[in-house]
Design a protein around this nucleic acid. Structure first.
Lengths: 348, 348
DNA sequence: GGCCTCCATGAGAGCGCTCCCACCCCTGAT
DNA sequence: ATCAGGGGTGGGAGCGCTCTCATGGAGGCC
C-alpha cells in the first residue's frame, strides 16, 4: 500500500500538502496540485479510509439497518433490491459506501431470548465505525428503536416510519393519495360498495392507506361503512381470510382495495375459492406493485411505489444533513396507479 | 465516546492491558481481567473500529461486490434478499459487518462510457478499507474482474462463478444434478421428446444445467437431439422466443426444461399463445424457485436452490480463509425438485 | 522603502488502538 | 543464596491521515 508520505517525498512536498490536494484542492497552488495529482495517479494512491476515518472522526460509510420482523419470521421487504440499487448509486456518486449492520435479530441468534432492537447499540455502532449516518428500514418491529436513535442527533433517514430529531427525517410514499386514487378509480368504474383490507395497526403507511381509502370514498360521494374496513397485516393469508369474511356478508362489496399486493392476491384466491370471477364479480386493487402483481391471473391493478426513488431520496436527504445542518422535511414520494385486469374496465 | 485510556485510568491499569482484555483475554490475570470487563461494561466501552482497523491493518468488515449486469440493465438477482439474510447472520455471529461496495456501474454513472469492472479497483478498496475479505456476486459481466481479484491473494468467495487463488473459492448450486433430476422426472412421466432452453454462453451455472440435461437424457436412455437445445439468456423473453421456435418444428417436444424460472414462464406464455395447454400438451420445468414460480398459472415445477445456504456457505468459507489459511474446495449446494402443476402427473 | 496582509507550505500533535519489547517479581532449581 | 525462567504488566512506537498553528515570501499601499 502506497501512503501519502511516499507521494510527498516523490513530489518534494510535505504530507500536509498531499492531504490538502485530496481534501481542499483550492488551497494548493496549481503547479503543486497538478504535480501531486500526477504522482498520486502514477502510484495509484488514494488515502487510506481507516486512517482518514480515525483522524476526521467521520468515515465515508453510511450504516444500513435492515432487520427482519421479529414477529413474522417470513418477512421480506417488497422491493429491497430496487431500494438498495437506488441507495447504492446515489451514495456512491458522493463517495460513500453502505455498511450493512448486524442487527438485533442476528444478535438474538447468538443469545436467544434477549432484547429487542436496542437503540443504544445503533448509536454505539455508529460511533465506533465513525459512520456518517444511518438509513433505517422499517421492519415492523423496531420503530421505537428508530425513534430513539433519531433523538441522539446523529444523522439518519428512516424509510416508511416517521422519526424526528435534529438530524433525522424520513421517506415514505404518499400512501394516502395513492389509496385515494385507487378508490376513485373503482368508483369511476361504477362501484358503490367498495371495501378495504388494511395493514397492521401501528404501521404508518397502513394508516395512511386507510385514510386515503376514506378520502377516496368521500371524493366519490360514497358512504363509509365500518363493516367494509377489515383489518389485515399485509400478508397474503390475512387478505384471504379478510376477503372471505367480506364475501360472507349479506351485501358483499363489489370491489376491494387491499393495502398490499400480497393481501390483494389473498383476496383473489378467496374470490376464486368462493366461485367468483375477478373482475366480473369482484374488482380488486392492490398496493406496492410487487413483481408478481403483473403475473397473477388476472393481473393485478395496483398502486405502484417509486422503488428506486426511496433509495435516492434517502441518500439525498442524508447527504444533505451530513454536509449541511438542518433536517429537511419528510419526503413524500408520488405513487401511480397501474391499471391491469383485476379491476375490470381497463381499456386494453 | 469513551476510550480505552479512560477505562485504563479508572481501573488503574495501562491501555495495553485493556487492549489485551479485548484481544487475548487469556494473557491477563483473572482479577485484572474481571475488573476491566466490569468497568468497560459500566462505561459501555468497546474498542473504536477505525482505530482498531488502522492498527491491525484489518477491519471487521467484509466487502460485498454486487453489480448489475452492464449488458442487461433490468438484471435482478433471483434471490438477493435471502442471500443477504444468510450472509448477514452468519457474518455477524462472528462479529463482522458487510460493506456494500460502490461498483463499476455506479462509477459509470459519473464518468459515462468508461471502463468495465476494474479488478484493480476492488483490490484498492479492499486495501483502503482494510477489508477482511470480499464476497463477489456474479452479475454476468464481471467474471473476469473477479478472477483477477482472486489472483491477488486477498480472501474472497465468489457466488456462481468459478475463481481460484491462494485465498479464493466459490459457492454454487449443484446445477448439473438439479437439471438431471428435472429431466429424469420428465422422462419418468413418459416424455420422450424433451427439449431445453439454456442460459447464456459463458455462464457457468448455465453450462452445468445443460450438462445435467444431457446427463438426465442419458440416464433415461433417451437420444440427444441438437435441435432440442435452444440457446436463451435466462430472461423471460428468450424463453418465449425459444419455445415458440421449438413449437414450430414438425415434431415439437412434449416437455421442456428451462434453465431458469423466468425462461420457463416465457415458455408457458409461448405455449398459451400457441393454443397449447400446460401440462396436458406441454410439460414445463424451470430452475431457481423464484417467488413467482408458485403463483403463475399453472404453478411451476422447478429445481429449487438453497437460497440462504449461499450466504451461510460463503460466510463460512470466507471466515475460514481469513482465520486460517488454505482455500477450501468449492462448495456445491444441493438442489431439490419442487413438483407443482406445470409438469403434469403430480400426485396432488 | 516600510509595513501590513494574504497566500502557500511545513512541522508536528493528535485520532484510539495494537503489539513489540522491556521490566519486575515470584518460583523453583542448583 | 543465586540465578534462570516465565507470567503479568507498562511504556511507547507506530498505523496513515487531518488539521491547527507557525513561517516565510510575495505583493499592495501610502
Amino acid at each position: 500500500m502506497v501512503t501519502a508520505r511516499e507521494v510527498a517525498q516523490l513530489c518534494g512536498v510535505s504530507v500536509a500538502t498531499v492531504s490538502r490536494v485530496f481534501n481542499r484542492p483550492a488551497t494548493v497552488s496549481a503547479p503543486t496540485r497538478e504535480r501531486v495529482e500526477r504522482v498520486a495517479r502514477e502510484l495509484d494512491f488514494s488515502p487510506n479510509e481507516s486512517a482518514r476515518a480515525l483522524s476526521r472522526r467521520q468515515s465515508a460509510m453510511i450504516g444500513l439497518v435492515w432487520d427482519t420482523d421479529h414477529r413474522r419470521p417470513g418477512w421480506r421487504h417488497p422491493f429491497l433490491q430496487d431500494l438498495l440499487l437506488g441507495l447504492k448509486s446515489a451514495l456512491s456518486s458522493h463517495g460513500y459506501h453502505l455498511l450493512l449492520l448486524a442487527t438485533s435479530d442476528d444478535a438474538r441468534d447468538r443469545t436467544p431470548g434477549v432484547s429487542l432492537a436496542d437503540p443504544i447499540a445503533y448509536v454505539g455502532m455508529t460511533r465506533r465505525h465513525h459512520l456518517a449516518g444511518l438509513v433505517l428500514i422499517d421492519s415492523g418491529s423496531d420503530a421505537e428503536a428508530f425513534g430513539a436513535f433519531a433523538q441522539s442527533g446523529l444523522p439518519c433517514v428512516a424509510l416508511d416510519v416517521a422519526v424526528s430529531g435534529a438530524k433525522a427525517t424520513y421517506v415514505t410514499s404518499d400512501n394516502a393519495a395513492g389509496a385515494a386514487e385507487a378508490v376513485r378509480h373503482l368508483a369511476a368504474l361504477g362501484h358503490e360498495r367498495i371495501a378495504t383490507l388494511t395493514g397492521p395497526r401501528g404501521n404508518a403507511p397502513a394508516a395512511a392507506r386507510t385514510e386515503g381509502y376514506l378520502r377516496g370514498l368521500a371524493a366519490a360521494g360514497l358512504p363509509v361503512r365500518d363493516d367494509y374496513v377489515v383489518a389485515g397485516d399485509f400478508y397474503r393469508e390475512s387478505g384471504f381470510v379478510g376477503m372471505r369474511r367480506l364475501l360472507a356478508r349479506k351485501d358483499p362489496p363489489t370491489a376491494v382495495f387491499a393495502a398490499s399486493d400480497e393481501m390483494a392476491i389473498g383476496a383473489l384466491l378467496a374470490a376464486r375459492a368462493a366461485g367468483l370471477r375477478v373482475p366480473a364479480d369482484l374488482a380488486v386493487v392492490g398496493f406496492d406493485d410487487i413483481e408478481v402483481a403483473a403475473l397473477v391471473d388476472p393481473s393485478l391493478t395496483t398502486v405502484a411505489q417509486d422503488k428506486p426513488g426511496f433509495g435516492t431520496a434517502a441518500a439525498g436527504a442524508l447527504l444533505g444533513m451530513i454536509e449541511h445542518a438542518a433536517a429537511p422535511e419528510p419526503v413524500l414520494l408520488p405513487t401511480h396507479l397501474i391499471v391491469r385486469d383485476s379491476c375490470g374496465g381497463a381499456k386494453r
